[in-house]
Amino acid sequence: MSDAIRLKVEKIDKVFKRRDKPSVEALRSIDMSVAEGEFVSIVGASGSGKSTLLRIIDGLIAPSGGRVLVDGRAVDKPGPDRAMVFQQDSLLPWKTVVDNVAYGLTLAGTRRADAERTAQRFIDIAGLQGFEHHYPHQLSGGMRQRVNVARALAVNPKILLLDEPFAALDAQTREIMQTELLSIWQETRKTVLLITHQIDEAVFLSDRVIVFSARPGTIREEIPVTLPRPRTLELKRSPAFVELVDHIWKLIEAEVRAGIKQS
C-alpha cells in the first residue's frame, strides 16, 4: 500500500431542509481520508448519516458545506473515478447479467463488443460464469450482489464505494461474500470505502474502521485494524478480533439502543 491519498473528505456538512418540518442535520464537519489501495469501513447506528456521506462522495447528492477530493481534485458529480455498489435491487430487471455488468460501460459510450469483453472479465472475477444470460430475478440474493460488484468494477474506478452491500443477505451467504470481496480487493487493488451495520464485517474486511456517532453524524473514533492478511473466516474467532469488535460495539451501543426506542 502506498501512502498517496486517494480520497479526501474536507469539512463535509449536510443539512436536509424539509417542507413544513424542522430540518435535519445529517452530517457535521466530517474530515477523513482514504489512502490509495486502502480498505476503509464506516460503521455507526442508524441515522448516523453514513449512507448520506457515501452519496455525497459519489456525487449523487450535494453537501451543504465542505468538499470531496479525488486525487486532489474536487468532485461534485458522479464520475468514472468512483463506482457505487448499492444495497439491493439496483440491477436492471430487463437486462441479462452480462448486460447489467456492461451497463456503466455502455452508458459511457464503450463499443458493445468491448463492453461485453470487459464485462466477461469481471463476471469471471465475481464467480458468475455460466450465468451470463440469466436475468436478475433468476438469481439468488448473493448472486445478484456479485453482479452488482462486477458492474461497479467493470468501469475500472479508482474508488469503490459500497453501501451495505450484504445487508439484505442471510448470515451465511454474507460471510462467504465477505471473503470473496476480500479476494476481489486483493486482486484488483482498488481503494474501497464500505458502509455497514455489521461491526464484525467492518473489522474483518478493513485496514481502518471509522466509527460514526448519530444525529448529526460525526466521526467518533478511527480504529486501525492491524490484523494480518490474507484473512480467513477463522480470524473472526481470534481474541484480537473479538476484542476490536467489542470495543467498537461499546462506542455505538448507547445510540443503537436509543434508535430502537425512537422507531
Binding site: A83, F86, L107
Partner: peptide, 25 residues
C-alpha cells in the same frame, strides 16, 4: 424505481440515458 435511477446516475448517465435505459423500459 428510484433505486434504478440512482444507480444510473451513479454511472454518470445523462437525463436522456436515464430515460432510455431506466424510466422507459
Amino acid at each position: 424505481d428510484k433505486q434504478l435511477v440512482e444507480a444510473a446516475r451513479s454511472f454518470n448517465a445523462t437525463p436522456l440515458q436515464i430515460f432510455s435505459t431506466v424510466t422507459f423500459p
